[in-house]
Computed example of a mutant assay.
Amino acid sequence: MGEFFAASLGFPVAVLSVLLVVVVAYWLLVAFGAADADWVELDIGGVPATLGLSLLIAVSWFACLAGVELLGPTSTPARLGVLGGSLVVGLVLTRFAMTPLKRLFPEDPPASRLDFVGRPCVIRTGRVTRTFGQAEVTAADGSSAVVQVRQPGEDPLTAGTTALIFDYDVDGEFFWVASLDFGHDPTLTRGDH
């Protein structure tokens, strides 16, 4: 066991040992909920960067340790060559490992107009009819868009009214909306009942 630690703490393996300790500490923090697994918002070949970097460091560390042990005591330039070679081996093997791992991290589907269906919107035109109208809708990510809307009925949908998007007409490229104010007729006042 002493030889293992001596090799792990000797040059050039020590360079990667420090990085490996950081990776292990990070994943322990993730396991106990003290850190977020999305440490770096980056994709490497379809796999989160934290996983890709962790694999690269672990594989490179092992390759460097094996290279130093196979070569035995050598000069500093040879050890630098082992470090460089281990990084290349780490890159190649990590890339091969990431190909099957991509299936575990499916890509988010692209944004679609159908994402607005089922969302409330605020009417931005003076009225909405069967042939005219616009509304502002907020997407799940917080962004907003002004979209073309139509209504099948005669609800009093005017500027500032909140409506519900319930369908999308692909041919006409507009959304069908309905009033969210059920049972209330704004033309009536309390004394008109």
Rank of each mutant, 00 (worst) to 15 (best):
A139Y: 06
V177E: 01
L91Y: 10
T187R: 15
T158D: 09
P77A: 01
T189G: 11
F105T: 00
T99Y: 10
P110G: 08
S75W: 04
V146F: 08
T129G: 04
H184W: 08
A31N: 06
S17G: 08
P156Y: 00
G118Q: 03
F105Y: 08
L53T: 04
W39L: 14
V88M: 01
R103P: 02
F105S: 01
E107W: 09
R119I: 07
E69I: 00
G33Y: 00
G142H: 05
S17T: 11
A63P: 12
A78S: 14
W39T: 10
A139S: 07
Q134W: 10
G90V: 01
R103M: 05
T161I: 10
V82S: 05
G81Y: 02
R124L: 11
V40K: 01
E69Y: 06
G52R: 05
F182T: 15
V40W: 05
G45S: 06
V82Y: 03
V128S: 03
G160C: 07
C64V: 02
A140F: 09
T131R: 13
F116R: 15
C121D: 04
T158I: 14
L70S: 14
Y26R: 06
D43N: 15
Q151P: 06
V117I: 09
V146R: 07
G72L: 04
S54Y: 02
A178I: 12
D43L: 13
D108T: 14
H184A: 12
G72R: 05
P120N: 08
L180R: 11
G2N: 12
S86M: 03
R103N: 08
P109D: 12
T94H: 01
G85P: 12
G2H: 12
L157Y: 00
G33C: 01
V177S: 02
D141R: 09
R190F: 10
D169R: 08
R150T: 13
A78K: 15
V88G: 00
H184T: 13
G52S: 14
R130L: 10
A37E: 13
T131N: 13
H184C: 10
Q134F: 10
